[in-house]
């Protein structure tokens, strides 16, 4: 709790105008921030010795296509940050528009961000600017599209074989 209060003060104090909202669903602290500020917030957090937020646990990506949330921005990126010293976790969430899902890469701060961002690029089509090697990682090289987008068909396979050549793509709702 104490740690969360300190993080709140730190982020609101230094990046107050970039924070859109704060969320506490199920006692998990998360900040909804502007995409342009993510890199600066992470850098400031990493450099701050008192908070000691040095562990980037995960980058999750969500596609809100077809949901009421979509008007805030179709793609949501969730940065999962952890402090080993305080044993505390919180999240930075940001929204990217459907037509230009671009955000600054965190690879200069964390080596661990490299593969996590490549995965987000491959599966959801988020572009990370400044990433040294933004290439496909999980899907085959000849696959077009980004499988975790909601408009990517669930059962239809891209490498077309004779048996599914005439099948129309089936989209999950």
């Amino acid at each position: 709790m104490e740690f969360e209060q300190e993080v709140r003060e730190f982020i609101n104090g230094r990046f107050g105008e970039d924070v859109i909202a704060e969320d506490n669903f199920r006692n998990q602290l998360s900040f909804i921030v502007k995409p342009a500020a993510v890199f600066d917030i992470c850098q400031a957090l990493q450099e701050d010795d008192r908070l000691d937020v040095r562990f980037l646990a995960d980058i999750a990506m969500v596609d809100w296509l077809g949901h009421a949330e979509e008007k805030k921005g179709r793609f949501e990126l969730v940065y999962n940050l952890y402090s080993l010293k305080h044993k505390g976790r919180f999240f930075l969430k940001t929204r990217l528009p459907a037509d230009k899902p671009e955000i600054k890469s965190l690879t200069p701060l964390w080596n661990g961000a490299n593969w996590l961002e490549r995965e987000a690029f491959d599966m959801m089509g988020i572009i990370f600017t400044g990433h040294p090697d933004l290439t496909k990682i999980l899907t085959p090289d000849d696959l077009e599209g980004h499988p975790l987008r909601r408009d990517f068909p669930l059962t239809w396979e891209q490498p077309q074989f004779s048996w599914n050549k005439d099948d129309p793509p089936e989209v999950i709702k």
Binding site: A57, D58, A60, M61, V62, D63, W64, H67, E69, V78, N80, N111, G112, N114, W115, L116, E119, L148
Partner: peptide
């Protein structure tokens, strides 16, 4: 880790798995 996003329906909007092996082998 499992990051689960519920959207008010009976199916998850998103289930993200934070895979330890994937991050470690990087």
């Amino acid at each position: 880790g499992f990051y689960i996003v519920g959207d008010g329906t009976n199916r998850p909007r998103r289930i993200r798995v934070r895979p330890p092996s994937f991050v470690n082998i990087a």
